[in-house]
Computed example of a mutant assay.
Amino acid sequence: MPHIATRQRISAFLLAAGALLGVSLVAGGYWTLWQTRGQASMSDLPPALITFPERRPLAEFALIDDAKGVFDLKSLDSHWSFLFFGFMYCPDICPTTLYDMSQVKREIIAAGVGAEALQFVFISVDPARDKALQLQRYVQYFDPEFVSATGSMGQLTNLTRQLGAPFRVEPATAENVYEVTHSSAIYLVDPSGQYAGIISPPLVPNNIATAFSQLYGDTAARQLAQRN
């Protein structure tokens, strides 16, 4: 079961005034953390990527992407999709995970997987505060190709339940002031829309890239064998 990360309260005016600055500081500091973490003994780390013996097809779902278009099951076609659920007001786990995802992407491409085969998606579970244009600017700070999406609570729950990605929006204590809890894992969906695996913290980009590259190669080899 993925870890559940509880977020501290943060008011709307703090986001408007300091979100990008905060992300910059976190990203800069996190680079040092990532380097230090990479020196840890491999035996101390859990598997970088847990894959399922049998992949599970996802049922239809519909969200709204950062261009105000539909993000649905068809949006996952022809890509290996890395899905992460969070929210823009998140002060720690979300920006650091998005930074990690940008490093994972870089490492996977360096290993020889084409960028066109990959899709990294940040899905906000806080639709009341996170709007499409804001989400687009937020995720593209980490990588210009990152995609974002959100939807109604019902639409979000339809997808998160399929993936086993819990989240909860707590009652507000003041206008636009409330806590959100959500999974800190990354969920991997294959190019045919099947739930293929899960990546849980701690996130070590090089290890994740190595594990994914092996999965990518094994899948390609199996598909080739089936065609022959």
Results as ranks from 00 to 15, higher is better:
Ala17Thr: 11
Gly18Arg: 14
Leu20His: 04
Gly22Ala: 05
Ser24Ile: 06
Ser24His: 14
Leu25Phe: 12
Leu25Pro: 07
Val26Phe: 04
Gly29His: 12
Trp31Gly: 12
Trp34Met: 15
Gln35Leu: 14
Arg37Ile: 03
Gly38Phe: 10
Gln39Tyr: 10
Met42Tyr: 06
Met42Leu: 14
Pro47Ile: 11
Ala48Glu: 10
Ala48Tyr: 13
Ala48Ile: 09
Ala48Leu: 08
Ala48Arg: 07
Pro53Ser: 15
Arg55Ala: 14
Pro57His: 06
Glu60Lys: 07
Ala62Trp: 02
Leu63Gln: 01
Ile64Ser: 11
Asp65His: 03
Lys68Val: 00
Val70His: 04
Leu73Asn: 04
Leu73Glu: 03
Leu73Asp: 04
Lys74Ala: 15
Lys74Leu: 09
Ser75Asn: 04
Ser75Met: 04
Ser78Thr: 11
Ser78Asn: 15
Ser78Gln: 13
His79Thr: 13
His79Leu: 01
Leu83Ala: 06
Phe84Asn: 00
Phe87Thr: 02
Met88Asn: 02
Tyr89Lys: 06
Cys90His: 03
Pro91Asn: 11
Asp92Ser: 08
Ile93Leu: 10
Pro95Thr: 08
Thr96Asp: 01
Thr97Gln: 02
Leu98Ile: 08
Leu98Gly: 03
Leu98Met: 14
Asp100Met: 12
Met101Asn: 06
Met101Asp: 03
Ser102Tyr: 09
Gln103Gly: 08
Lys105Ser: 08
Glu107Phe: 13
Ala111Leu: 14
Val113Leu: 03
Val113Trp: 03
Val113Glu: 08
Gly114Tyr: 09
Ala117Ile: 01
Phe120His: 07
Val121Pro: 07
Ile123Asp: 01
Val125His: 10
